[in-house]
């Protein structure tokens, strides 16, 4: 239990991330160092690499090692209706405003396996807005994108999601939103019809549309301040005037240079609105 875990120095991590960037075009250099260091050493433990040099060598040589690395190094933990109070704000304060748009364009940036996207689709459906919504859901990890497209979740977590749903103000039968099959819950197809899942890298890719709301919750916590600032610029460029920006409940615009371009819609749930 107390055996020292795989260790990696700053220089070794720099070298590894540099090799990953030059070989595969994924730039992790502005990811949060503390978190990246921890995930790489965990990866080394579970995949059985004794030294950082070994792993760097294999990453360079073997695409399949990189694919596995990419899958494990990005954080893919998510749930439906995570932070129910946040969804209450979306329900009560944001959707009534979005209802005035003929077409509602939504971007979930860093959607992981789609749980929060499906939650949003349920809210839109209950508000009668799903049919005229276009939801773009993107993630850096191609494995997540493929998983999200399938819309299949493990059945054993649905009980907890149901509790989140009720706390968020949901009044329907939550089980009516999915079909149970063996140990799986399959999200109803009509809820997924207007969702387009695709790969997008917030570090290197550009703005691709104009949205009425962008949700990027608990994604930028894995970035350093410099990259966070750049991504907020990307979001600002991708929002219509008075478009909404939703972050994770412990994320802040205070450390960015665009904080004056946004007004606060919900201080606790970190919902903002572009005003300039």
């Amino acid at each position: 239990m107390t055996t020292q875990k795989a260790d990696i120095t700053e220089d070794e991590l720099d070298e590894m991330l540099n090799v990953v960037n030059t070989t595969y075009g994924y730039d992790f250099s502005d990811y949060s160092r503390a978190s990246m260091q921890r995930r790489v050493s965990r990866f080394m433990d579970t995949a059985g690499y004794k030294t950082a040099v070994d792993l760097t060598f294999q990453l360079k040589k073997d695409r399949s090692v990189f694919d596995y690395f990419l899958q494990r190094i990005t954080v893919n933990v998510t749930e439906m209706f995570r932070d129910p109070a946040f969804y209450k704000v979306i329900r009560q304060e944001v959707l009534p405003v979005l209802a005035s748009y003929p077409i509602i364009k939504i971007w979930h940036a860093g959607c992981s396996s789609g749980e929060e996207v499906f939650s949003m689709a349920i809210l839109l459906s209950e508000a009668g807005l799903l049919k005229r919504s276009r939801i773009y859901a993107t993630d850096v990890n191609p494995y997540n994108v493929e998983k999200a497209k399938k819309g299949i979740l493990p059945l054993n977590v649905m009980k907890e999601y149901n509790e989140n749903y009720i706390q968020s103000g949901g009044q329907n039968d939550f089980a009516s939103y999915y079909t149970s099959l063996y140990n799986n819950a399959i999200i109803r197809k009509d809820l997924r019809e207007n969702i387009l899942f695709s790969q997008h890298n917030l570090v290197t890719d550009q703005a691709f549309n104009e949205f009425q709301i962008i949700l990027c919750r608990n994604v930028m916590i894995y970035f350093n301040r410099r990259l966070q600032n750049r991504v907020i610029h990307l979001f600002n460029d991708s929002l219509s005037t008075f478009g909404y920006l939703a972050l994770g409940i412990k994320e802040s615009l205070l450390f960015t240079d665009l904080q004056n371009k946004f007004e606060v819609v919900s201080k606790d749930e970190k919902v903002f609105r572009r005003i300039k």
């Binding site: 916590i221 350093n224 301040r225």
Partner: peptide, 13 residues
Amino acid sequence: LIEKDRTFSLDYS
């Protein structure tokens, strides 16, 4: 988590 520049990083892993 704590970064080298003595700021906090949160992590939802």
